[in-house]
């Protein structure tokens, strides 16, 4: 418990983490506002008969995950790279391992802290984004059902797993540049993995394409994967990356 608390303290004292939280909280609601306004004016103009897409609001939450990515990367990279004008190359990981010599425990605590922080962030962002969408679209929006709650849970799981994937990759690279570049590129409007599904159906089982099934219902792909199966596939990927990252973390000099 102490280990998780200290990892949460570390996260809370990193300015980059607060920036990541701000990005996470802002991107999805702002995009949802823009897209819902567009849909609304189309409905009012009569060019769209409504109701809005079943994915309105959720589509935007898929972009918002960028906040979770930044948080996941920074949680690990901050241990290795001290940035700042007076930084002299001191690496915090040495201090961390002095305080918590069991590497496995340190890593589990870190993953736990990231998961906790991102889960709360995802929950808050989902509520704000769906409120914005429903508030703007009113009657044209998709009715709230038990399924909506399940999909919000899907969003939370997707954000947490994506953040852990980011942390896992950073365990290998130590510098945050590569994981940020790869994962942010792949959160774009047309992602690289989506393009790969056009080349091979197997790409539907890549972590993000599978994980999106947890909350996106109208994914443009001939391969159908049930939400729970999609989540399981993504979970398996992230578990694999984290275990590999943990082995590297155990074996390599700190």
């Amino acid at each position: 418990m102490n280990a998780i608390r200290s990892e949460l303290h570390k996260l809370a004292s990193l300015p980059s983490v607060w920036a990541a939280i701000a990005v996470g909280l802002l991107v999805a609601p702002v995009v949802a506002y823009l897209s819902s306004s567009t849909t609304l004016s189309a409905i009012q103009a009569g060019t769209d008969s409504g109701p809005a897409s079943i994915d309105s609001g959720f589509q935007e939450l898929a972009f918002g995950v960028v906040g979770a990515i930044i948080l996941g990367v920074v949680a690990v990279s901050s241990e290795y790279v001290a940035e700042g004008e007076e930084a002299t190359g001191t690496r915090q990981i040495i201090t961390s391992l002095t305080a918590a010599p069991s590497r496995a425990r340190l890593l589990i605590a870190k993953a736990g802290a990231v998961a906790l922080a991102v889960a709360s962030l995802a929950m808050a962002t989902s509520v704000i984004t769906l409120t914005v969408t429903r508030g703007l679209l009113g009657e044209a929006s998709v009715p709230l059902t038990a399924d909506t709650a399940g999909r919000v849970a899907g969003v939370v799981v997707y954000w947490v797993l994506t953040a852990l994937l980011a942390s896992g990759i950073t365990l290998f690279t130590r510098s945050g540049i590569v994981p940020l570049a790869v994962l942010i590129l792949n959160t774009s409007v047309i992602t690289v993995t989506y393009l790969l599904t056009r080349v091979t159906a197997l790409a539907n089982y890549l972590p993000d394409m599978a994980g999106l099934r947890m909350f996106i219902r109208e994914l443009d792909s001939p391969v159908k994967i049930a939400p729970l199966n999609g989540g399981a596939v993504m979970f398996a990927w992230i578990l694999f990356v984290l275990v590999a990252g943990a082995i590297v973390f155990q074996r390599r000099d700190a």
């Binding site: 920036a19 960028v66 945050g176 940020l180 590129l185």
Partner: peptide, 14 residues
Amino acid sequence: TLPAVATLLSYYFI
């Protein structure tokens, strides 16, 4: 580096 990378990539790609 990292804040700049995060900012610019988020802008250009999202």
